[in-house]
Design a protein around this nucleic acid. Structure first.
Length: 701
RNA sequence: GGGCGGUUAGCUCAGUUGGUUAGAGCGUCACAUUGACAUUGUGAAGGUCACAGGUUCGAGUCCUGUACCGCCCACCA
């Protein structure tokens, strides 16, 4: 084989791609090992978490390939509904454009162009980590095959009666103008005021006086002796629009210890109150609209934003003797995970899926141990969530996504991918991003199945690579994504989507905070790569790759580690230079050394024993997904055993040691390759070798 | 209010089923040195492993409790 000299990392990557070493082979006789890359959101940069995730995936893929598996490492991108749309709308507003001005069709056209731009700028950096993915199979969640899969999913649920549309109280983000899921809501601790209001004979406490226009009852706990005599009776109460009769009801949801033990019931704008309202047949009054402003029922406060209206009405409440007391109150306010605006519970027409049966079935397969979780306690975390699941609100008032495949004509309704004909109008909403992401393990392999005759027939890809052997995720999307993949996959295929589920920890700043754009505390992996190289950056990240363990990092700490592993790379380069470039004239090439390792010298025997231990350890640690330990083992062996001890001693018997040196170095390169792919390939090419690339070498056993 | 995780050297963290003097990197100090490598080598200092009990021949590791930090879940308006 000819030796190759590479100019830089990209040069090596291109070489691998050209040799098609990343491609999975459907017709391979080897056993398969499939890994599914979590599709990054199409909103911009690769962040540290991605970089770590990709590094872990790639190490395993390379390891399995060398172990003789036909590896599929499948890449893809997620359209990321809300996130993409808000990024794009911000860009439009800088150009003086709005959704309204453009209209849906024009907006979508521009959105697709923007998508292409973003994709181009980010896909390069995703590859830069060295990801040995099969790019020929890359999937985007809005590709035709995903569209088909999503339609099949929707239609199946619909036909089985699991999908329904109805008014429901949802978490509404007034800024993103869409309903969001419970799991997309964050809580922010805020100091507000608790207002005591006089309602007829009773006094109650509330933090939201502005919703009083929507009150339809007062409620107390049925066990509360103080109010026993009031229950079931109506009282005249003073409102801002004059006097009004209101009933007192009893409901278990009322906590007698809160405030005065009496609450006002506003079924239109509070989750508890909505439930109370349902149980007691209370009417629903809309006080807040989808822009977060008060409606006409608020009289002169109509049109004001919630917070402003609250302030504005206080003087009148005081004056009329309704507001009798105020106190400081610290509580959690719901905010939108994406844009951080206060979320309003409001009633909206939305689509839902009843997932309780699916979830039950998912709990069964998880309990049966069909998926191995890292760390193992996630098994319990997921089954508990699935056991207590609510109907899934799948509609979003966005334009970027899979449009709900329902068409209307007068009172008629049809589920169809294409327009059923003249006069039919499609539903305006799109599906929740996770509706398509939940299908990811299936849609990436060609589900739904149909042959030329339209009969179901599994694709070859699906037959071979499903279920996936390995999936990885950040813990924060365990419910949004992981639980749903398990549930949906099991529903459609009666199989788990993946056999191993790895949750990595979250990288945080030194105060333990998440990295976020708004805090400006992010660390750009591209910076680390520029500074220390891809391999060193990967190594630094592996030290944080322990399942479920968060890590605290700063730019300084990552620089330290990056520098350290860059030095390690230099160490190996120097070892290679010592062993291969400066070798004595009278020694043979590596090829002969493989057969001639019978040296009786005690140093030779020692280093070979240590090497064997290393190989065993690294193999074991990779198999048990403890990459940090594998990295540590190699580091110690190379630096302290091989370089500091063995090489130093070998200097007095250089020629004799040559064969052992080459043998050890070559094996070190192989076991290090999953972690530092570029460096190891570069040095491998300096050997008189038998394989085109180190990627094709066999893992030593 | 429930559930989970963390607490080990100045900093960031390892420590795999309990087993000798508890480890790494960075930082600090001393010495060496152009010898594959100054992106170096040798050595040193630095820890009552959060705290209190318990199990054990033996506990950083297992059990109970406490404190602090963090995360997730939850309809306290």
């Amino acid at each position: 084989m000819t030796k190759k000299i590479f100019i830089n990392e990209k040069d090596i990557y291109d070489f691998w791609e050209k040799e098609k070493i990343f491609s999975a082979d459907l017709n391979s006789k080897k056993p398969k090992y499939s890994l599914l890359i979590p599709p990054p959101n199409l909103t911009g940069e690769l962040h540290l978490g991605h970089a770590m995730q990709h590094s872990i995936l790639d190490a395993l893929a390379r390891f399995k390939r060398m172990q003789g598996f036909d590896v599929l490492l499948l890449p893809g991108v997620d359209h990321a509904g809300i996130q993409f749309e808000s990024t794009f709308d911000k860009k439009l507003s800088r150009e003086g454009l709005t959704k309204q001005k453009l209209g849906r069709d024009e907006w979508l056209k521009k959105a697709w162009e923007f998508k292409e731009d973003i994709y181009k700028s980010v896909s390069g950096s995703w590859r830069m980590m060295g990801l040995s993915a099969d790019w020929s199979r890359e999937v985007f969640t809005l590709d035709e095959k995903c569209q088909n899969a999503v339609f099949e999913e929707f239609k199946t649920y619909f036909d089985k009666g699991l999908i329904y549309r109805g008014p429901y109280i949802v978490q509404w983000c007034p800024r993103d103008q869409t309903a969001i899921e419970d799991v997309e809501v964050e809580y922010e601790q805020r100091k507000e005021k608790l207002y005591y209001l006089k309602y007829g004979p009773l006094t109650l406490a509330t933090v939201r006086p502005e919703t009083k226009f929507g009150d339809t009852a007062m409620a107390v706990n049925p066990k509360d002796a103080r109010y026993k005599d009031y229950v079931g009776r109506e009282f005249e109460i003073e409102t801002l629009h004059g006097k009004k009769m209101m009933r007192v009801i009893a409901d278990d949801a009322v906590d007698p210890k809160f405030g005065t033990g009496v609450i006002k019931v506003t079924p239109g704008h509070d989750f508890t109150d909505y439930e109370i309202g349902k149980r007691n047949n209370l009417p629903i009054i809309h006080v807040i609209n989808k822009e977060g402003k008060l409606t006409d029922v608020a009289g002169k406060y109509a049109g004001m934003k919630v917070a402003a209206a609250r302030e504005a009405m206080l003087p009148e409440l005081r004056e009329k003797g309704i507001l009798v007391k105020e106190e400081e109150y610290v509580h959690n306010v719901s905010v939108c995970e994406r844009c951080k605006s206060t979320v309003e519970p409001i009633i909206s027409e939305e689509w839902f899926v009843n997932v309780s049966e699916m979830a039950k079935a998912a709990v069964k397969v998880i309990d049966a141990g069909e998926i191995e979780f890292f760390p193992p306690n996630y098994k319990k975390i997921l089954t508990e969530w699935l056991s207590d699941i609510h109907d899934w609100c799948i509609s979003r008032s966005l334009w970027w996504g899979h449009r709900i495949p329902v068409w209307y004509k007068g009172k008629e309704m049809k589920v169809s991918q294409e327009s059923p004909g003249e006069g039919w109008k499609q539903d305006e909403q799109v599906l929740d991003t996770w509706f398509s992401s939940g299908l990811w393990p299936l849609s990436t392999l060609g589900w739904p199945f149909a042959n030329a005759q339209g009969k179901p027939e599994k694709t070859k890809e699906f037959e071979r690579y499903f279920p996936w052997d390995f999936e990885i995720s950040a813990p924060e999307i365990k419910y949004l994504w992981i639980a749903r993949m398990i549930m949906i996959s099991n529903y459609f295929t009666r199989q788990v989507p993946f056999k191993t589920m790895f949750f990595h920890g979250m990288l945080r700043d030194l105060q333990g905070r998440k990295f976020s754009k708004s805090l400006g505390n992010g660390i750009d992996p591209i910076y680390l790569i520029d500074q220390w190289g891809v391999d060193a950056t990967r190594m630094a990240l592996y030290t944080y790759s322990i399942p479920g363990r968060d890590g605290r990092v700063s730019k300084q700490i990552l620089d330290e580690r990056g520098k350290n592993f860059r030095n390690f790379g230099t160490k190996i380069r120097n070892i290679a230079k010592f062993v291969l470039e400066l070798k004595p004239q009278d020694t043979n090439s590596l090829r002969s050394t493989v057969y001639g390792l019978q040296s009786k010298n005690k140093d030779d025997k020692w280093i070979k024993e240590e090497l064997e231990k290393l190989i065993k350890q690294v193999t074991k640690n990779l198999e048990s997904l403890e990459l940090h330990l594998a990295v540590d083992d190699i580091y110690n062996f190379v630096w302290h055993d091989l370089a500091d001890k063995y090489i130093e001693k070998s200097k007095s018997r250089r020629g004799e040691a040559q064969m052992t040196l080459e043998y050890v170095l070559k094996n070190v390169l192989i076991v290090l390759h999953p972690f530092m792919p570029y460096l190891t390939e570069e040095i491998y090419q300096m050997f008189d070798k038998t394989k085109t690339s180190i990627m094709l070498e066999e893992w030593p056993s």
